[in-house]
Amino acid sequence: MNWITKMFSSSLGQKLIMALTGLFLCSFLIIHMVGNLQLFKHDAGLAFNKYAVFMTTNPLIKTTSYLLYAAILFHAFKGIALVFQNKKARPVKYQAFDGKANSHWSSRNMGILGTIILVFIAVHMSNFWWQYKFGTVPYTRYTENIQTGEIQSDYMPDNFTMNSKMEEQSEGLMKVTIVKDLFRSVELGFKEIWLVALYIIAMAALSFHLYHGFKSAFQTMGLNHKKYNGAINFIGIGVFAILIPIGFAAMPLYFFIK
């Protein structure tokens, strides 16, 4: 066996793969969060729809997104395999087991939390990503007054289609944009209470998953020192276990209540 397969098939190497893919997925969460904040803009979804076009056409982002899909699948299936592999290390279970005495609940249930997140990603992507790429998302025409900033939106007929996802034209002070209306899919989707509930449960799972996962990834990479442990904990808990899940959970709630 050469050194590289030896390293990545060792227990430490497999954990390193989990740590690196996990942190890559964390970096995506930030981008996804910042971009999706445009859902809260009062512009009938114009900025969000333009952003969706950019995210699905820019070659650099497209390349990164394929890396991301690979990382999601790898992290998920490697993680599930590791859970079963680790279970084999204790064939006879304890009759009395007091886990809470020595470790946090989330650290002992990463597999279950991760599975909830994986199910969520499947539902989330089939609802929006799949629909946007392969399904039928209707178009909307936005008429924007450049001077006043006033935006008027008109739904195009359901059978309307064109070759590109977006076309922009200027007519004097008026800027006309015809664009695939993913915003409308979001608005409609989040009227379903079961979907909103799934999103909130999944974001709670994400919070607990990252509460342990973020700092655990640094430990696996060998980065544990009192000089910077405070910063890792602060970012892991404050940003990834609190801010990000709350921010994402606020989106379906906002559209459900709106």
């Binding site: 227990s11 430490l12 290390a89 650290s107």
Partner: peptide, 10 residues
């Protein structure tokens, strides 16, 4: 045949 470390701290 020991398992892998998942940093639970137990």
């Amino acid at each position: 045949g020991f398992g892998a470390c998942t940093n639970t701290g137990a």
